[in-house]
């Protein structure tokens, strides 16, 4: 085989299922991994963390202006107190959508995403198309999410190149004003906390 000038050689045939099985067997035989730990990791990201964590923050920020202020100004303190800090959310900045600015978050270099607040990212967030296009043509990308940003509004795209993670604080919809915190949680979708959506009346499909 031709030797390539690259530290890593990856032209191995890919039968991922068999490879992972073999790899796991080797690591287990050597006593380097334990199944219970692997199960615990999966359980955390499949069942324990998800967009509901972020949604609760947003709903509280909508009805409590002093909390909103702390969430924007002292984000890490607030998240630590609420036990919402953690892996891939060690450092967080919250960016607020207003009548003048719409924020959108991407990671062009890989797939950085605030895990403790939103869980694992949706497939499109990790896609080549989103990573390539979100910075160059954000308005066209947003149109594909059925979001038409008025010409008068500024679009700001946050490229997560460091360990700082970004969470969008969406604008509260007019027709949700007066609702309780618990009711408002259901209006906050995952996509609107990435900036690829706006809060929606529960039960209404993203049409």
């Amino acid at each position: 085989m031709e030797k390539k000038n690259n530290k890593y050689h990856n032209s191995f045939p890919l039968d991922p299922e068999a490879r992972v099985k073999a790899l796991k067997t080797i690591l287990e035989t050597k006593g380097l991994v334990e199944q219970e730990a692997l199960d615990e990791i999966l359980d955390t990201y499949q069942n324990k963390v998800g967009p509901i964590n972020g949604a609760k923050l947003i709903a509280k920020a909508w009805i409590d202006s002093s909390f909103k202020n702390d969430l924007l100004e002292q984000t890490e303190k607030v998240l630590t107190e609420l036990n919402l800090s953690g892996r891939q959310g060690e450092h967080v900045t919250v960016v607020e959508n207003t009548s003048e600015i719409h924020n959108l978050v991407v990671c062009t270099l890989c797939s950085c995403y605030p895990w403790p607040l939103l869980g694992l990212p949706p497939s499109w967030y990790k896609s080549d198309a989103y990573r390539s296009r979100a910075v160059r043509e954000p308005r066209k990308v947003l149109e594909e999410f059925n979001l038409l940003i008025p010409n008068s509004k500024k679009v700001r795209v946050w490229d997560s190149t460091s360990e700082m993670r970004y969470l969008v604080l969406p604008q509260q919809p007019e027709d949700s004003i007066g609702l309780s915190e618990d009711e408002l949680v259901n209006w906050v979708t995952r996509d609107c906390m990435i900036g690829a959506g706006i809060p929606k009346r529960p039960g209404k499909f993203n049409d």
């Binding site: 499949q46 270099l109 499109w124 896609s127 080549d128 198309a129 390539s132 160059r136 594909e144 999410f145």
Partner: peptide, 21 residues
């Protein structure tokens, strides 16, 4: 991997967007 701004990519697919694994 340094994809920001790369030209030629198509529409964003929402297929299986909620499937973690």
């Amino acid at each position: 991997h340094d994809m920001g701004g790369r030209l030629g990519e198509g529409k964003i697919s929402k297929e299986d967007e909620n499937v973690k694994f």
